[in-house]
Amino acid sequence: MTSLATLLPEPLDLGGYRAGTPQRAGALTMVPVYGPARPGIVPPRSGLKLKRVVGYGQVELSNGAREGVAIVPLHIGYIQDAAQNHALCASALLGAGQTRRFDDACCVQAAQGGYLEGRDQWFFVLPAELRASALALRGQHNYSKLWDEISELNRACGLPSRGHLEQILSRRRATLTQFQSRLELMPGQLGALFFLGDRFAGLELAPDPVYFAEVWTALVCFAYGVAAWRAEPEPEEARPYEAESLAELRAELARDRAVRLAEVASWMPAPARDVRMVEEERYLDLRLSTLTAGGLAGQVVTEHGRPVYASVFTTR
């Protein structure tokens, strides 16, 4: 496994975290990340609840756990039938039992009436194509602020050019959700590096494996799956190895795999320059900051300088 010490810009240090064996599904490569867990953080599916939508662009979340702070995953969104789906532009920290209203949420379903309620909901993370814009628009009270980007994404997907993210997330759900099986969550995994083709797409880091397992589907199927689905390569004809015995075949396979693993390692981005870290909020010793660097953006939660949560993606 490969050390990730220099992947994130200073002062963030991923020393102690290690990259595992890459997995590939079409254009999407996922490298599992292992490392020290930070127990006690409330995970998003079992602890965090969408309480209600107060008005368009105003979403109320609550941390229903008896103890533990909840880290709201960056760009989490909720889908529900017959209601306007919303997504958040930023991450947040919610103490146990705390309810908080986000007035800068974006509607992701233009012209759909109705408010989301706390029933029958499932969550996603905004597709990578929208994340830089969404992050840049945090703090702006305008529920339709992402509709142009969503329309553009729909058009790029060959769908009607509308501000309905649901066109992709729901109608293509059967295809997108296959990514959670095409790429397997590994035991003990608490993060992942994602690559589209040979380009770094993002780093996702969770406090512990339970938290990561709960956000896994939303990340792999929707945050990175949409771009991977768009870039799905045509199946290639299998080229035989040059081997004249079973032993030679085994050796050829091992050699070829080593080459491909080394190739993935070469896709790692160089340490970023011109890094800016802006603290957005804090909860006791946890600090939520927005990170921008050359070609990278995202948010990280640190504790005593050590990353606890990170969602960092390319902006190019």
């Binding site: 064996t21 890459p22 997995q23 590939r24 599904a25 296959q178 099986s181 095409r182 790429l183 397997e184 290639e236 299998a238 080229r239 035989p240 190895y241 040059e242 081997a243 004249e244 015995s245 079973l246 030679e248 075949l249 050829e252 396979l253 070829d256 795999r257 491909r260």
Partner: peptide, 22 residues
């Protein structure tokens, strides 16, 4: 049907078997 560990390997190995005398 989901070959996670470097997909395509099963197909390549299967395609090699006849030439490897299997």
């Amino acid at each position: 049907g989901y070959e996670n560990h470097l997909p395509g390997d099963l197909a390549r190995v299967a395609a090699t078997l006849p030439g490897a005398g299997v």
